[in-house]
Design a protein around this nucleic acid. Structure first.
Lengths: 63, 63
DNA sequence: TAATAATGTAAAAAGTTCTTTACATAGTAT
DNA sequence: ATACTATGTAAAGAACTTTTTACATTATTA
C-alpha cells in the first residue's frame, strides 16, 4: 500500500526518529512503513493521521 | 478499539456472512472484529469504510 | 580527520490478525 | 419435532507487525 508519510514528515522538517517518538513507536517501524516493508496496524495508521491532522484515507492509498 | 460495524451492517440488513463475502474475508473475521477480539488490519479497515461509503475514522474509534 | 546525525539493512523474538475446521445455541419456519 | 438460519466459541497454523540489538553508509561539522 502506498503512503505519504515521508512526504508529510519532511514537510514538517522531522526526522524519522522524531516522528517515531511522537507516535510512540521505534525508528525501525517508521523506516519499515515509509519503505513499504509492511503496512502499519490500524491503530498506528490512525495515530499517524491524527498526528498529521488529516485522515487515514489521505495518507494511505489502498491501490 | 470501538467500532460501528455491527450497527452499519444491521442498518443495511446484512448478515455477518454476507458482509464477510462482500469484504472477501471469512465470517470468523467479522465476528472477531464486531466482538472486539482484535482490530482489523489497515487494509481491511479501509475496505470496510469503503464498503459502507464512509471513512475509517467514522467507523473505528481509537478511544 | 574524527565525531555526529540521519537513514538504511538484517535477523530474532514476541505479539497480532486471519483462515480453516468443528461444534454449540437460539430463534424461526415447516 | 425437525430443519434451517444467524451468531457464537475454540483452537491450531500461517502470515504479518513491532521491538530490540547491532552494524553500515552518507553527509555534515568541529
Amino acid at each position: 500500500m502506498e503512503n505519504r508519510i515521508k512526504e508529510l514528515r519532511l514537510g514538517r522538517g522531522l526526522t524519522q526518529e522524531e516522528l517515531a517518538r511522537a507516535l510512540n513507536v521505534t525508528r525501525q517501524t517508521i523506516i519499515a512503513i515509509e519503505n513499504k516493508k509492511y503496512d502499519p496496524t490500524l491503530r498506528l495508521a490512525m495515530k499517524v493521521a491524527q498526528f498529521f491532522e488529516t485522515r487515514v484515507e489521505d495518507i494511505f492509498i489502498s491501490s
